[in-house]
Design a protein around this nucleic acid. Structure first.
Length: 90
RNA sequence: CCAGACGGCUGGACGGCCGCUGUUCGCAGCUCUUCGCGAGAUCGGUUGCGGAUGGAGGAAAGUCCGGGCUCCACGGGAACGCGGUGCCGGGUAACGCCCGGCGGGGGCGACCCCAGGGACAGUGCCACAGAAAGCAUACCGCCGGCCCCGGGCGCGCGAGCGUCCGGCCGGUAAGGGUGAAACGGUGCGGUAAGAGCGCACCGCGCGCUCGGCAACGAGGGCGGCACGGCAAACCCCACCGGGAGCAAGACCAAAUAGGGGCGACACGCCGGGCCUAGGCCCGGCACGCGGGUUCCCGCGCCGUCGCCCGGGUCGGUCGCGCGAGGCGCCCGGUAACGGGCGUCCCAGAGGAAUGGUCGUCCCCGCCCUUAAAGGCGGGACAGAACCCGGCUUACAGGCCGUCUGGCAAA
RNA sequence: CGGAGCGUGGCGCAGUCUGGUAGCGCACUUGCAUGGGGUGCAAGGGGUCGUGGGUUCAAAUCCCGCCGCUCCGA
């Protein structure tokens, strides 16, 4: 998947919570496939982001072609690698 | 047993962990209505926790029809226009849907397919080929005549005769060969050659009788062939249709900007005059409002602050699921369907929930194996957005029933 | 939710209304011309007309279903 992050500046009001956005475009597949991809991404974010994501950050997860069918452990590795590349891992 | 036709049902099962959401009950916090001096009680809302319970489909899809519902328009109705439908009867709230029947076509059969009204209301088209493509005609032929005509050949001494080719007049439409389609087809008679010219059968047309509610069918009679196809070409006839769509529509209602009213401070630009600064007066111009047709008259005048009023936007609430509802039994009907009784409550999201993950079983394929065990991969089409009745399209696998053809056995 | 348009050689488009012959430009191939290339001249190849049915003697064209793409309105 694609992981996008937005870190608010010091002058902006900053919440403690992590805010999440999900995207599954028509390119990914039909309505069923898009729904499934979005749900898997939501479950993935619930599992990983509160523990390892940066506090007060906004994240957007974008589904790609095989998000609905990729094995679950691979998906977990993907998001963890993405967080490390952003320097948000903790 | 094999092959096939039709109709119906189903659309993986169980469990562990972690989640989302509707309803309802309990507790707690906040808020609010009413009562009370007060403690508090009470109606409702909202948030959190806990318990109970519900949570995608047969097509939820495509958005091709028909309705409910809501708003808009309209005095009633009709006509014109536009769009749609099109054998007959029935079902239904309605339909372009469904059922039954008729006609045509396909299949040995079960059965399947068909927009299937009108071509004497009119207009139009039928390429190429062919003589001719729609009112009918006559190119090649075939037949007869020529005392009138031209030419060739043969016979004859000769007038002439015979024959062939051509011309002219008349009869004919059987044959030609094209084409998707040719003014009926086959056979017999008939004739100079032919022709529905006559006859039989078939086809066609028009009455009659009988059966059927009807579409239509059956029988018999007459006509003697005249009436080609295309209306999913224009069109004619009959019937149907007001428009938009839940982002319909109703209600509550921020911040900011803007509108109106009241009050306070305050009074646009140019020229001239008065006066120490700063303001005042007169005339003109610009703007707003009101009144009588261009034009004129009257009144007001920038802005700032405070209070109040109304409209829109963000947001929120409703619409929003008891319905032409599901299931079971009985009755009527060939059936679609209708009636009665009993029983059940069955998703309601909103940048959009109904799930994520793991395990066991089931089914299918591949590998290994004599087999078992085992390993790997896969489990269809597809996701509600106001609701309902249909149509169309997609769909792995499985189950049930009825029927047809063939083979075998009894 | 409602509506409109498009699909034809490799590419961009005609032809569809009014049914019988699929055409144009660029590109491609071959030859000539040039020392070579470009340009020019001549000749040539290449199209299930998106798809499945139907009407018709005959369908790119008329009718119906489906697929894909684009656009518009609320």
């Amino acid at each position: 998947m694609v992981l996008q992050a937005y870190k608010p500046g010091a002058d902006e009001p900053r919440a403690e919570d992590i805010r999440l956005g999900l995207t599954a475009s028509r390119k990914v597949g039909g309505a069923v496939v898009r729904n499934r991809a979005r749900r898997r991404l939501r479950a993935l974010a619930r599992e990983v982001l509160p523990r390892h994501g940066a506090r007060g950050c906004d994240y957007v997860l974008v589904a790609r072609g095989d998000t609905a069918t990729r094995p679950w452990p691979d998906l977990v590795e993907d998001i963890e690698a993405a967080l490390r590349r952003l320097g948000h891992w903790r």
